[in-house]
Design a protein around this nucleic acid. Sequence first.
DNA 1: TTTCCCAAGCTTTTT
DNA 2: GCTTGGGAAA
Length: 680
Amino acid sequence: MARRFVLKTEPAHDRPPGLTIDYAGELNEQQLAAAAAGGGAHLVVAGAGTGKTRTHVLRVAYLVESGTPPEQILLLTFTRRAASEMLTRASALLDGRCQRVQGGTFHAFCLSLLRRHAERAGYPSNFTILDSGDAADVVDLVRNAAGLSRSGKRFPRKATLYAMISTAVNRQMRLDEVVEDRYPQFVDVLEGVERVATGYREYKSRHGLMDYDDLLMQAGMLLEREADICRVVASRCRHVLVDEYQDTNLLQARLVELFASVHGNVMAVGDDAQSIYRFRGANPDNIFDFPDRFEGARVMRLEHNYRSSQQILDLANYLITLASRRYDKRLFSSRPDGELPGLVAAPDEQTECRFVCQMISQLREEEVPLNRMAVLFRSGFNSYALELELNRRNIPFVKYGGVKLSEAAHIKDLIAHLRVVENPKDASAWNRILVLLEGVGPKTASDIIEWVAERDREPFAIEEKPFSPRYAESLIALFSMLRRLRSGELTLQDQIETLQVYYEPILKRKYYEDYPRRQQDLDHFSGIAAQFRSRAPFLESLALDPIELTALDAEGAVEDEPPLVLSTIHSAKGLEFDTVFVIQAIDGILPSAYSLRDTEALDEELRLLYVAVTRAERNLFVSYPILQHRRFEGEYFAKPSRYVVDVDESILEPIRLEEAPIEGRPELAPGRQDPARLPF
DNA sequence: TTTCCCAAGCTTTTT
DNA sequence: GCTTGGGAAA
């Protein structure tokens, strides 16, 4: 038995620091109090636009300057983008000294923990991460194996099953509670659901798979179970900073507690009025529970908004009063002079797009850079019509949110091959690549997977050919390709190329109709791979940070102008723009039709609109089409969003669109109009 | 057992 | 408009 010697925690703030940054000059009083706070637990309740990021950045700088080693600071954020932005800004302030701060999302940080201590967590260190699509596929495999796919009783589909399982984990509820609460229609098949859930759990651990929830849960369990690991990890977390605390779930709150369990220095920043991830299991009450969770916590507030004009804040303040839950928050601005936000009722979607495009062009002529303007919407598809119109007018844009390149079937096929090479036990990836072979269906695939699993020494060797000649040849081709990828002789770039050559005939067979378009995606994918040194980090990055399928590759973009931003409201969190357009403000879209029955869900939709509105600094336009097209039913009269329809005109000013009189010009055929001279 | 074809059902937000 | 599931032919 080794002897133990306990090192005392050295107080970090004893030394009166020789600071190079003038914090008092950079920050207001409230911000300064937060940025330069001492140790212990702090909750900073920061309204929208009150300089949350700035405070975080200077907090990091302050800690580093006052003697905390950068690698002992942990900055947890909601997205990778947010983490890298903050660290870049902090590094710029302190000539690169903040580079070594540990930063990233909860998921990424937990992943690195688990890789380092995989054995102790009961996993192989090359375990694979499943995104939600993969996870649903695994659930499907389990369900089929359990014979629950047979009809008779209605049984939830794979995505629903997985949603149930995931909700239970994230909210720390029992599965039966989740089903009773949120899926009452499936109460009578609860037993089957539970069998699938159990099977899913076993399947993952047998094949070295983790889904997103496992990253959090397994990391939490590891730290709780293995006191020595917990001590090592938490010792390195002299200061824990958490951004967007209102969107953490119970697991994440617990993790923060564990990370801070040695030093007890936590600063959580958040805004209860901006909680928009309840659907994913976020627990907005975490903010209110913070003082209970962390003894002696001090609560601070940031209320002075530097972002938006008072007119925009008036609308935001008004909106938040519509919530069924009270938020005691009134933001005030130092920019009193502004225009009223506008409400635009367009006759139809096409006209709404014309309005947005024309206003954008006009503002650009007034020297507002394109990338200081954003169009925000509830769901990814809400911008399709606008994207067409922007393309037609050669206005460059990027889109955040919506469909991800790495979720396209053909890209997932390629990724699955890489996953098998990386982790030959990954049965879900095996299944995916095997059923691509002609003559192989689910049954044969599962037989082959069994057969492979029995000989885990040399995973891709076929000595004898115990299989039907129907597919033996293609199976041998697959295995020899996998062997090459695994050999270690090829760079990642060459591996992808080999893979593409192998996959091309499959692509043509499977998608004979539109394979050229998909081929382009594959090339794009291969280009992205070029930024990575090897397979493992590439796969990891794909799993944690799926590639946004942006319209950036619009070939026709002549200008090198930074593009206009299109974004789902969720993806726009934390960003700010000179001008914001909120389009498709229709009842059933914003608020979403799925939330109409439930007041808590409705409140979240309202907060979503609140987030959208508070992104704007100077100009805000909320618009909706009166005549809306719906996929099946055709045209119908839309109801404007309940949140904007009754707002007083002194807060949200109606804007009437008028068509310019056409001056002696015959009407042009649609699609051939001259965009620059298009009248309203 | 696979594959093809047709009918049915559902469709959000993200790590 | 697309994916998913079921049924039947090969």
